[in-house]
């Protein structure tokens, strides 16, 4: 029996937009892969780079940070800060040789249930061929 590899994606979703967007996808019964472990955060700007490193450390195959579109952040500026910080984290992870596909960011509003499912579908599709993330994982 050969099981197909199912990546585990840790998704940090901001409470006001992306998390609501994922709820919308759920209540509208849209279909999308069940590979995501969602973690609701108050704002994309509250995602410490350490959360991201830690997720990979604990075995995530991919990590997503998703927040409100620019201009729509509940705290006005959080997603602009996040955009800067995440750009640096992304560059750092790529620099040490992690596959760039494994770490992504998206803007998903509360009304974009559809977009949320698309982001997840694409994410899963892109990292499936990479196999499990073993570089940064603990105790392998």
């Amino acid at each position: 029996m050969t099981d197909e590899f199912e990546p585990r994606i840790v998704a940090f979703l901001c409470k006001w937009c992306s998390s609501a967007g994922s709820d919308l996808a759920g209540v509208s019964r849209m279909e999308y892969p069940s590979n995501v472990l969602p973690i609701t955060v108050m704002c994309s700007g509250s995602v410490s780079p350490l959360y991201i490193f830690s997720a990979f450390n604990k075995g995530a195959d991919g990590v997503l940070v998703s927040g409100c579109h620019p201009g729509d952040c509940h705290y006005l500026k959080g997603n602009y800060y996040a955009r800067r910080r995440i750009a640096l984290v992304k560059k750092l992870l790529e620099f040490i040789g992690l596959e760039p596909q494994r770490f992504q960011m998206s803007w998903v509003s509360a009304a974009e249930g559809k977009k949320y499912t698309q982001v997840i579908k694409d994410f899963v599709k892109e990292i499936k061929p990479l196999g499990p993330q073993t570089k940064l994982r603990r105790n392998q």
Partner: peptide, 16 residues
């Protein structure tokens, strides 16, 4: 400081 500010035109081509 670098991460406590931003500009409107900061790159975001990596964001979906």
């Amino acid at each position: 400081s670098l991460v406590s500010c931003f500009k409107d035109e900061d790159p975001e081509d990596f964001i979906r």
